[in-house]
Design a binder for these strands. Structure first.
Length: 282
DNA sequence: AGTGTATCCTGCAGGC
DNA sequence: TGCCTGCAGGATACAC
């Protein structure tokens, strides 16, 4: 996905375009995107004013004037594209799934090629319960290295799998998990609980650094990701290991490797990220 | 508790 | 040119 930096970039782009607008009508050409009957979704959303746009983890949240929340999970290929009027020609999204028709003629389109995304309208209480099941926000100032270290210490899972679990930390996906572990000098397959305190601290710092840098660059476009204005993110060229298997490590020159576990590719530099912790006896 | 597998979908790149 | 396989930023459910 769209991971945290991509969701954040979309949110920032959407705010000036849709805050204050009223949803006049909905159109749902791909109802499997919704997690409820489209009539029910329509009744909850129709006539409501969008009073805020926020992010939680990888989710984009449209806050409505009755306290309810339209939660959008972008899946792998989801886009949220606002238009002043019905899009035509080259502008027209190729796989529109949900349209929110706005008073005054505008439209917010959720477009999703693979349809792994979801759109749902939750009451304030429902959203609160959902959010409570998600892990902390890594960029929250209250999220400390100590908190990350505590979390890691309770898991036998590989640290890369741990980072992808949204119940443990919200918003980190495969790209930034791999990049942060490279910056930390930690092999992706190391058991979470086996990381030293110093390693956990480096992972904490690296996650925050890479997420902030990616937000600054407007996210990473590998293929499908676009921001709210349809533009690509600029972080792809700054990736140090992700999808760079076979290339030389920019730091030590070793050949970057790709391994698959947990059903996902992991990328790492065997020189910078030894399989055993530094200083551990082998 | 963790892992391997399958599932939801479409599209693209690479091998032949 | 076409057909096939594998792979993709996510999330979940299942059996073991």
């Amino acid at each position: 996905m769209p991971e945290l930096p991509e969701a954040e970039t979309i949110v920032r782009g959407l705010r000036p375009a849709i805050i204050g607008r009223v949803v006049e009508q909905t159109r749902v050409p791909k109802p499997d995107i919704l997690r409820e009957p489209r009539g029910r979704f329509a009744r909850k959303v129709r006539g409501r004013r969008i009073v805020g746009v926020d992010r939680r983890g990888k989710n984009v949240l449209l806050r409505l004037d009755d306290g309810s929340v339209v939660a959008v999970n972008l899946g792998m290929t989801g886009r949220l594209l606002p238009f002043d009027s019905a899009p035509r020609g080259a502008d027209r999204p190729g796989h529109p799934a949900v349209h929110l028709l706005l008073e005054g003629g505008g439209v917010l389109v959720f477009d999703d090629t693979r349809r792994f995304g979801t759109v749902e309208c939750l009451s304030a209480a429902e959203w609160s319960a959902r959010s409570a099941r998600m892990g902390p926000e890594p960029l929250d100032e209250r999220y400390t290295a100590h908190a990350l270290r505590e979390g890691l210490s309770r898991s036998r899972a590989p640290v890369r799998s741990w980072l992808l679990d949204q119940r443990r930390i919200a918003g980190v996906g495969n790209i930034y998990a791999n990049e942060a572990l490279f910056l930390s000098g930690v092999h992706p397959r190391r058991r979470a609980r086996d990381l030293t305190g110093a390693e956990a601290t480096r992972v904490h710092r690296s996650i925050r650094r890479v997420l902030r840098a990616a937000i600054h660059a407007g996210g990473t476009t590998i293929r499908d990701y676009r921001d709210a204005s349809g533009a690509e993110g600029r972080y792809a060229r700054r990736l140090l290991v992700y999808a760079r298997d076979g290339e030389a490590c920019s730091r030590c020159g070793a050949v970057i490797e790709r391994v698959v576990f947990g059903n996902r590719s992991a990328f790492f530099c065997p020189g910078c990220q030894p399989a055993k912790s530094r200083g551990a006896s082998s």
